[in-house]
Design a binder for these strands. Structure first.
Ligand SMILES: [Mn+2]
Ligand SMILES: [Mn+2]
Ligand SMILES: [Zn+2]
Ligand SMILES: [Zn+2]
Lengths: 146, 146
DNA sequence: TTCCTAAATTAGAATTATTCTAAATTCAGA
DNA sequence: TCTGAATTTAGAATAATTCTAATTTAGGAA
C-alpha cells in the first residue's frame, strides 16, 4: 500500500528536482542531513555527519561544492550568525533566529512569532526583506538529531 | 582658547582610555579610521586605509591584533552581514543595519527607527537582545569618507 | 547494449584569511 | 636612567575555502 506521506528519500528527491537539480547520492545525503537537523551546521559539521552515512566516504570538496550548488539553486540557505562562520539551513521558509549565548546553538523562530515590522524607514531605504536575530538563553532543551 | 568640542584626536584618546586601553599610535589610527567612517570595513579594508594614514606603515598582524583588542574592550563591535566576512563598527550604540543588495554596503539604522519587538517568544526563550537586518535598495546616496 | 558526451565527483594543490611565535620596540613607572 | 611589562612586528603556521585537472558516473542516441 502507498504511504500516506512521502518517505524521507522521496522528500529529498522531490526537493532536488523541484530546484532543478539532478539527484545524486552525494547531493541526497547532504540535503537529507540538512533536512533532518535543525542545528544549522557549518560545512565541516556537514562533512563529518555525511561521512558516516555515505558508506564509501565523500570528498570534502564535494561537500563544499554541493552546499554551494544547493544554495545557488535555492534548496538551502546560508545563515550568518557568528562572524566568520557560514552555516547552512534546509528551512527555506522566511523565519528568524534565536542564538543561545551560552551554547551558541541557533534555533528557528517562525515568521509569525514576530510582529510585522513597519515596511518603511523614512525615504532613504526601500525595504525588500528583513530578518531578526534574537540573543539570549534557550530555556527548554529541544533535542534533535545531531 | 579651548575648542567648544573635543577634537578628533581627543575623542580617540578618550575612547581608548574609557575602555581601559593604553593609547598607542597604531590603536589610535585604527580606531580613528573606524570612527571616521560608517562603511563597516573588514580587516583588509582597515589595513589598506590605515596604511595610508600611518607614515611608517603598520603590520597586518597589528591590525588584526588591534581590532580584536578593541572588540574585547568594547570600543568597537563586530558585524556579521555576509557569511564569511567579519566587519567592524565603531558605532557601539544599539542599532540595526540595512544592507543594500546591489552594492553590499551596510547602513546604520538608529535603534529608535524600529518599533520595539515584544520581549517574549513564548516560554522557550529568554530574550536578552535582538538585532534587525533589513535588505533592499538604498535610495539616497549617503556619501562618507571611504 | 554499447558508445558518446556532459555533468558530477574527487584528491590534492593553491589561495586566502586569520592566528601564532618569538624577537624587537616602546613605554610607564621606580 | 633603568627595568619589566605591554605592544608591535615579520614571517611562519594553521584553517577554511576554492581551484585544477583527472576520473567516474549517468542519461540519451545509435
Ligand atoms: Mn557559499
Ligand atoms: Mn574577532
Ligand atoms: Zn533557520
Ligand atoms: Zn553599524
Amino acid at each position: 500500500m502507498n504511504p500516506v506521506r512521502p518517505t524521507k528519500t522521496e522528500n529529498i528527491r522531490e526537493t532536488l528536482e523541484a530546484h532543478g537539480l539532478k539527484v545524486t547520492p552525494q547531493r541526497s545525503v547532504v540535503l537529507g542531513y540538512l533536512m533532518s537537523t535543525d542545528r544549522h551546521p557549518n560545512a565541516e559539521e556537514v562533512f563529518q555527519a555525511v561521512s558516516l552515512h555515505l558508506a564509501g566516504a565523500i570528498s570534502k570538496a564535494t561537500v563544499y561544492n554541493t552546499l554551494n550548488t544547493l544554495v545557488a539553486a535555492g534548496a538551502i540557505v546560508e545563515v550568518s550568525a557568528e562572524p566568520g562562520v557560514t552555516r547552512y539551513d534546509a528551512n527555506i521558509e522566511s523565519h528568524h533566529h534565536f542564538i543561545d549565548r551560552e551554547t551558541g546553538r541557533i534555533y528557528d523562530i517562525p515568521w509569525e512569532s514576530v510582529e510585522p515590522l513597519c515596511q518603511t524607514l523614512g525615504t532613504d531605504f526601500s525595504i525588500q526583506d528583513y530578518h531578526v536575530t534574537f540573543y539570549g538563553k534557550a530555556l527548554k532543551h529541544e533535542h534533535s538529531p545531531p
